[in-house]
Amino acid sequence: MCYDIAFTTNIESIFKYLPQLQANLDIDFDPTWHKIGMSYPQWPVITNNDGLKLQKFTWGPVPKMLDTLEKVKRQRQLFLNARSEKVLENGTMWNAIRHQRCLVPATGFFEYRQIPGWKNKVAYYIKSKEQDIFFIAGLWAFSNSWDVDKPTRIPTFTLLTRNANQVMTQIHNGGDNAGRMPMMLTNELAQRWLQPELTDTDIREILQYELSPAQLDYWPVNSVRKVKPDDAAVIAPVTYEGLPDLVV
């Protein structure tokens, strides 16, 4: 699943791709080459509330079922991502909030490739080939914040994922959630995703979109699950001797 993302440019760059976005000069977000979902960071998120607005939400909803601090610690990470197939499945949390749609801007994300016979998986950095920033479909919700004695309600979000395309199937090929990738949208679909009047049929059509492998750049990097400076070295290409080629 997509638990590692990057936003390596300045926040103002988003306006180039969404010119109708309402200016919010108060938002403060420094470039980052890696954030892991399990740290539940704040992230720039775009919603449509009387116009497109850019705000900071916390990554990782806290469902009502997680009603104690211990439950939150054990299970919150399960809600960092949401399968796009569940959005229109009756009775699911994601179906209940399907009208609370958002966009999660990113410049790249990381996944791990399992190589037969290798002890360690190989990390890859993946980005759009066509533009510096791309948009991932998301859902948002107000959640209890359990990092204080008296929980307060905070805006949170989850990233949608879908079945991986040909290249991402080869990269994200291990673990319980192998064969998934972020629900990356074209700029046109991203703007449509935020339209408040979407029907379930409209939502289904958008979620059927699959990004072509030809629209992605990707290369091996060092593991991002180790403490290191948050700078461009995180996404520097790395050569692994004997690494099998990806079939394109």
Rank of each mutant, 00 (worst) to 15 (best):
C2H: 01
C2E: 01
Y3P: 13
D4T: 08
D4Y: 07
I5Y: 11
A6Q: 05
A6D: 04
I11A: 02
S13H: 12
I14T: 00
K16H: 06
Q20R: 12
A23N: 09
D28A: 04
F29L: 07
P31M: 12
T32M: 10
H34P: 02
H34Q: 12
I36L: 06
S39V: 07
S39Q: 13
S39C: 06
Y40D: 00
W43Q: 08
I46Y: 04
I46C: 04
G51C: 05
K53S: 09
Q55I: 08
Q55V: 07
F57R: 06
G60M: 05
P63R: 13
K64S: 15
K64A: 14
M65D: 01
L66W: 02
T68P: 00
T68L: 04
T68M: 02
E70L: 04
E70N: 10
K73E: 10
R74Y: 02
Q77L: 11
Q77M: 13
N81T: 11
A82R: 10
R83M: 06
E85K: 14
K86A: 12
N90F: 11
M93G: 09
M93T: 15
W94E: 01
N95H: 14
A96T: 03
I97R: 10
R98P: 00
R98S: 01
H99Q: 12
R101I: 00
A106L: 06
T107A: 03
T107N: 02
G108R: 13
R113G: 03
R113C: 05
Q114V: 05
G117H: 00
V122W: 08
S128Y: 00
F134K: 03
G138H: 08
G138A: 03
W140P: 03
A141E: 15
A141D: 08
W146K: 05
W146N: 07
W146E: 06
K150C: 03
K150Y: 08
T152E: 08
I154L: 13
P155K: 13
P155S: 12
T156Q: 02
F157I: 09
T158W: 01
T158A: 03
L159D: 09
L160I: 12
L160W: 09
A164E: 08
A164T: 11
N165H: 09
T169W: 00
G174L: 08
G175I: 04
D176Y: 02
N177G: 10
G179L: 07
M181E: 07
P182M: 09
M183A: 14
M184D: 01
M184H: 04
N187F: 04
N187W: 06
N187Q: 14
L194V: 03
T199C: 04
T199E: 06
D200H: 08
D202R: 08
I203H: 07
E205M: 10
I206R: 10
I206E: 12
L207C: 07
Q208C: 06
Q208D: 11
L211I: 11
L211G: 00
A214G: 07
Y218G: 11
P220D: 11
P220N: 13
R225A: 10
R225V: 12
P229W: 15
A232N: 14
A233K: 15
I235L: 01
I235W: 04
I235H: 05
I235G: 02
T239I: 14
T239G: 10
Y240P: 07
Y240Q: 11
G242S: 09
P244Y: 10
P244E: 11
V247A: 05
V247I: 09
